[in-house]
Design a protein around this nucleic acid. Structure first.
Lengths: 110, 110
DNA sequence: CAATCTAGGTAACGATGCCACATAGTGGGG
DNA sequence: CCCCACTATGTGGCATCGTTACCTAGATTG
């Protein structure tokens, strides 16, 4: 067994954008939501999440604002920009195409 | 647009193994077959393919033998080892699980 | 009081695919 | 006849990106 699943490569950004498409969320909530929604199949490490958020913010696809979490703690809320919505659409389409292709190769019985 | 699709990350090995599951093939044929089978959706660069083949060979999931291609040129034919078949099964299952999770997140309408 | 959860963050690392290029033989078109 | 395109393998350097392993800090709960 070589390594874990670094399948996330190239997909994490899209997942984050999608998570924000229903409204602003803070980082921790993004990770929780993704984990819950996928019954734990997708586990986002903090060391992946926060750098990813910075990248996305720098590229202006999301923007951040400090606020207060549901539990009264200080938290940074991220929101999609219009640019982000456009990128989400594009990346979703790319994913669909890619996943369809891989499945077509991989899933037929040996 | 940030970069191309390096979605292949972590998936390339499985695709190669699958390609070999129906019999030995040489590197170039693997790339062609994947491209054809997916109508060009998966394009494997040489700079990715050959290093990947070495990695797989070193890990004993495939083994190589020099031979002659259909067109009479010298070519290195790769074949799955039993170990390779086992890994293919495992990786296919991982992919299915991962893809299902991502699709569940990404594909519902915004 | 310790542990656990929420919340954000950083540094160093390694894996892996990509780009660009090199080599070489062959077949076909102009 | 020459050049291009295609078959076929390979290499070096690069960049990206997720992971591991930490750290801080406040709140809650056992």
């Amino acid at each position: 067994m070589p390594d874990k699943t670094e399948h996330l490569h190239g997909t994490l950004d899209a997942l984050i954008l999608k998570t924000l498409s229903s409204g602003p969320r803070h980082g921790y909530a993004i990770a929780r939501w993704l984990e819950d929604t996928t019954d734990g199949a997708l586990a986002i490490e903090e060391g992946s999440l926060y750098p990813a958020l910075y990248r996305l913010e720098k590229r202006r696809v999301i923007e951040a604002e400090w606020g207060t979490s549901e539990l009264g703690r200080r938290a940074k809320f991220y929101a999609l920009t219009p640019r982000g919505r456009a990128e989400l659409r594009q990346r979703t389409a790319e994913w669909a195409r890619f996943a369809e292709a891989v499945s077509r190769v991989l899933l037929p019985a040996t």
